[in-house]
Design a protein around this nucleic acid. Structure first.
Length: 272
DNA sequence: ACTGGATCCTGACTGC
DNA sequence: TGCAGTCAGGATCCAG
């Protein structure tokens, strides 16, 4: 699924087509997503204007006027396209948000781990968003923050980095990539990494996420941006899915290990 | 407060 | 060609 860079690439892609448009309604073909698509979504959004397309963690937040917000999560396999509303839906095209120019923002999600939620309250107070950690591209995300939050934690630094209460947006690909750039073994207990290590890690996270956004995200199999284009950061991945290939820094064969139930990729020499 | 494990779902791929 | 098994970009819930 889309991690933060893929969600941000999606946001940048749909924003010019969606922001400022009035919603005419919603067409729900399959409400059984991660959580059920709300009953009455069509009525709830009809006539409201999209004033902003934002992102919080891996959620897209469409702010509406007068009031209300749509929260859209892409789960593992979700994607959003802007298409003519008359385009015949293909398999797994579960929801259309109908815009006032004859187009539709169309959610496709084969695995249905994604979600569309509706709230009248300020979106940051929604249970799914309240309690999340800082954005990794915000100044509040620092090595000091990671160091402080990790004291006495025995779980791996990789699991720690993927904990949305610690910092949001980092999934399995970018966790491996950031730990490689920081020279940290993914299985190291989070509480044993020192301040210098977390300073390197915080910087590495921001670097790799920014680079991935600039490349249009990472396409492993089914991620496409809102215009259908794949992301090209796959070519720049240093370790992810590269078991046995030479480390780009030292040439040692890269290794794979299952850490916190997720495949993890690392260089045994550069990441002690 | 943390931790690891199970869970939701479909599709792609591997090996027999 | 078919079939069973494995794995996949997420994140919640639960027991301990």
């Amino acid at each position: 699924m889309p991690e933060l860079p893929e969600v941000e690439v999606t946001r940048l892609g749909i924003q010019p087509h969606v922001e400022g448009r009035r919603l005419e309604g919603a067409r729900v073909r399959e409400p059984r997503l991660r959580w059920p698509v709300p009953d009455g979504l069509d009525q709830a959004v009809a006539g409201r204007r999209v004033t902003a397309v934002r992102r919080r963690a891996k959620y897209l937040v469409l702010a509406l006027d007068p009031g209300g917000s749509l929260l859209i999560h892409l789960g593992m396999s979700g994607s959003l396209r802007v298409v003519p509303a008359t385009t015949p839906p293909q398999a797994h095209d579960h929801v259309d948000l109908l815009l006032d120019n004859g187009t539709a923002l169309r959610l496709r999600d084969p695995r249905r781990f994604g979600a569309i939620l509706w709230t009248e309250a300020p979106p940051e107070t929604h249970p799914r968003l309240a309690g999340l950690g800082p954005e990794p591209l915000d100044p509040a995300f620092t090595g000091e923050h990671l160091h402080r939050r990790s004291r006495s934690r025995t779980a791996s630094v990789k699991a720690f980095l993927m904990d949305a209460k610690v910092v949001v947006g980092i999934g399995n690909i970018y966790a491996s990539e950031a730990l490689f750039r920081a020279g940290l073994h993914p299985a190291r207990p989070a509480g044993e990494v020192d301040r210098a290590g977390y300073d390197r890690l915080a910087a590495a996270v921001a670097e790799v996420l920014r680079a991935a956004i600039a490349a249009g995200g990472t396409t492993l199999r089914d991620f496409t941006a809102s215009d259908g284009a794949p992301g090209y950061f796959r070519q720049e991945l240093a370790v992810y899915n590269r078991t046995g290939e030479p480390c780009p820094a030292c040439g040692t064969p890269l290794e794979k290990a299952v850490i916190a139930q997720r495949s993890s990729f690392f260089c045994p020499h550069c990441q002690p």
